[in-house]
Simulated scan of single mutants.
Amino acid sequence: MSPEKIKKSEETRARILEAALRTFQQHGFERATMREIATEAGVAVGAAYYYFDSKEAIVMAFYERAQREMAPKIEEILDNARTPESRLRGVIAYKFEYFAPNRRLMSALSAHADPEHPLSPFSKDTAAIRDEDIGFFARAVAESKVKLPPRISPYLPRLLWLYQMGLILFWVYDHSHEQRRTKLLFDQTLKMLLLTLKLAGLPFLRPMHKLAADLLDAVYEEKV
C-alpha cells in the first residue's frame, strides 16, 4: 500500500472513531448502532465494519488512543514532580481533565466492570493498557522513595491504580456542580492515603504488616 493510501486509511479510521464517540455521547453506547456511526462518519456501513468489527472494538481503540495520548503528559508530570503528593495528584487530576469530554461515555462503560467483559478495565483484553498505567504508579512510588514492608511494597502500584479507578467511577456519576464532590473526595482521600503511607513503617504497626501482606496475597492469589 502506498504512503498516500496508508495516510488516507488512517484518516478514515480516525474519522470513524471520532464519529463513534459523538454517537455514543448522543445515544449511549448500548443504543448506538454501527449504521449510525457510519452515517455520522460519512462512510458506508461496510467501511465502518472494515475498520472496526464491533462497537467494542471502537471502544478498545478509544482506550488505546487515550493511553497513547496521555503517556507523554504523565511522563512530564512525573519528571517535574518532587513529592509523592504532587506525583499522584498530578497524574490523577490529568486523567479527569483528559476524559472530561467523554465523561458520559465513561459513565456508560462503567457498567462493564465484570472482568469477563472485554471492555472491563480488569479484563485480560485490557491487560496491556492496565499494566502500562500501573507502571506509571510504580514509577511514582519508586521516585518518591515510599518505604513499606517488603511483602507489601510490590502491591502498592496496583493499589494506587485501584484507588484511581475508584475516584474515576465516583466522578462519572457525580452530578454536583463541576463535580465538586469528586474534588473534595480526591483531596481528602489523597491526604489520608499519604498519611497512611508515612505511618506504615512505624514499629507499633508491624503486627499489621503480616496480616496485610497475607490479605493481599490472597486477593491477588500470588506470592511476590
Rank of each mutant, 00 (worst) to 15 (best):
R104A: 13
L148S: 06
P121C: 05
L119P: 00
A81K: 02
Y51C: 06
G135D: 03
Y63A: 04
K183G: 12
R35D: 13
I6W: 08
K124H: 14
P3C: 02
E18F: 09
M60G: 03
E178D: 12
R13W: 10
A14P: 09
E143N: 06
E222W: 11
I77Q: 00
K73G: 02
A19C: 06
L78D: 02
L185C: 05
K95R: 12
L216R: 03
E76S: 14
D53G: 11
A19N: 03
T189K: 12
A113D: 12
K73C: 04
L167I: 05
L211W: 04
V45Y: 15
H209G: 07
L199C: 07
I77D: 00
K147P: 02
F24P: 00
D125F: 12
A71D: 11
F186V: 00
S54P: 01
Y155W: 14
I16K: 05
K7E: 13
E221R: 15
P115W: 12
E75I: 03
V219Y: 15
M70T: 13
V91Y: 00
R31D: 08
D174E: 07
I16T: 00
E76L: 15
G90T: 09
N80K: 14
L215S: 13
L21C: 02
L148W: 01
E132W: 09
W161I: 04
A213E: 05
L216F: 09
L88R: 00
L197Q: 02
E69T: 11
A212M: 09
M60T: 08
E36V: 01
L194W: 04
L21H: 06
F52N: 02
P207F: 09
N80M: 11
T182I: 02
E36A: 10
L194V: 04
L78K: 00
D174A: 11
L195H: 10
V224I: 08
L78W: 01
D217T: 11
L211T: 09
S86H: 08
A57H: 15
L156S: 04
Q25C: 05
A212F: 13
V43H: 01
N80Y: 11
I74Y: 00
D125C: 12
H112C: 15
K95F: 10
V141W: 01
S153A: 15
V146K: 07
L193N: 04
I6F: 06
I74L: 08
E56P: 01
M165K: 08
L193G: 05
R89I: 01
R31Q: 14
E30M: 03
